[in-house]
Design a protein around this nucleic acid. Sequence first.
DNA 1: CATAACATTGTAAAAATATACAGTATTATA
DNA 2: TATAATACTGTATATTTTTACAATGTTATG
Lengths: 157, 157
Amino acid sequence: MDRSARLASLRRIIETNKVASQDMLLKLLQDEGYIVTQATLSRDLKHLKVGKIPDGKGGYLYTYSDSANKGGSDKSLAEDFKRGYIGIDFSGNMAVVKTLPRHASTVAFAIDNLHIKEIVGTVAGDDTILILPKDGVKRQELIHSLKSRIPGFTENL
Amino acid sequence: MDRSARLASLRRIIETNKVASQDMLLKLLQDEGYIVTQATLSRDLKHLKVGKIPDGKGGYLYTYSDSANKGGSDKSLAEDFKRGYIGIDFSGNMAVVKTLPRHASTVAFAIDNLHIKEIVGTVAGDDTILILPKDGVKRQELIHSLKSRIPGFTENL
DNA sequence: CATAACATTGTAAAAATATACAGTATTATA
DNA sequence: TATAATACTGTATATTTTTACAATGTTATG
């Protein structure tokens, strides 16, 4: 099942490109290997609460508005996290999160946007994320901070 | 000239109602006495940078996003000004601007962001704005500075 | 005044977007 | 296992939105 990976790509595409129509989005998705119909894309956009607004230069622009997604965001971020999460390990002071294939960027995005104060940032590959803890944060403190922000989080499944 | 008044109403309608389609907006505008075609409405929405966004409850919603209109160009700021502006008067060294109901904050925002050097700042109520001129700036100088930055500005309508 | 440039609008049509419906697959439940 | 409930999708269509074009009016300019 590819839907959540597709949604993650879609979000990234919209956040990093100026796209004026669903047809154009369809092509960009295609470039990443996702072949769907316009109908499905329309549904995906609705799911992500992506809006279409005039760009002030005579055209239109699809936008992923954080504010539109703010309400209840922690909840859906935690869901994003759990959807892809497999397990966590440590290497030196860094945490290594394993995810389902292609889910790394979505999970990392969720971590970033939960704004956990013990975490400085993340780096995501395809199924692996590096979490960079703030200076002096111990492994157990990091685990605890994740537990406190992601209901049902456990160290390993 | 009805257009700017219509745009003001349109904006207020959108800010205070949950509207799902242009047809619905058309009816609300009608209720206020503005009879236009859907084509004109579409153009108006483009002008105001009003977007259509999924509401998270299965429907869609027209939204006037401040952020979309934030980095307003001088041109659109001047338009905001003129859309709400009624007249200007003086009290002591301060200028008192009257606006359409509820337009004070928009007009004041426009004045602030035009960064007129003769103006220190503004205070806005609901339909009234106080402009605080810089020390030593005379009434006529203030008027002149407004004229120079807001095409078509006149002291009273 | 005449003419040009610009602004606003409706009509009609094109283009873009949303969705009803049906089909498939997956998961849950008796 | 059989049945029901849920999730996801494509097809075809309906709905919605945008725009080309022409008409009208307004403002600027010679």
